[in-house]
Amino acid sequence: MDVPVHFFLMLSAAMFFIGVFGFIIRRNMITLLMAVELMLNAVNINFVVFNRFLYPDYFEGFFFALFAIAIAAAETSVAIAIIINVYRKIRSIEADDVAEMKH
């Protein structure tokens, strides 16, 4: 592999902060969820790259990425269930329409 490790890390950092940006500017709940998926994906790249380039003796990063993918799936399913429940109530998934509890 002749691409330096820093390139991978910068790529994942960019992806992570694009996710953060999306989480800040968007108000649609499903889009928020997608932004979080971007962030989690960036983290997985980090783990895999560190494992492959720097510490290839044990597969700690590899397994962390594996478990993180499984957990992300579980989290998404619960989030989607809640979003659908909200939608049944108010027929909208814009977070601003939901905000009824302002002080």
Binding site: I30, L33, M34, E37, N41, N44, I69, A70, A72, A73, T76, S77, I80, I83, I84, Y87, I93
Partner: peptide, 20 residues
Amino acid sequence: QLTVYAGGILVVIVFSILLT
């Protein structure tokens, strides 16, 4: 990554988009 993320999570997301 392909089966769980692209195949699982994304399908669920697309479903929920089409539902809502």
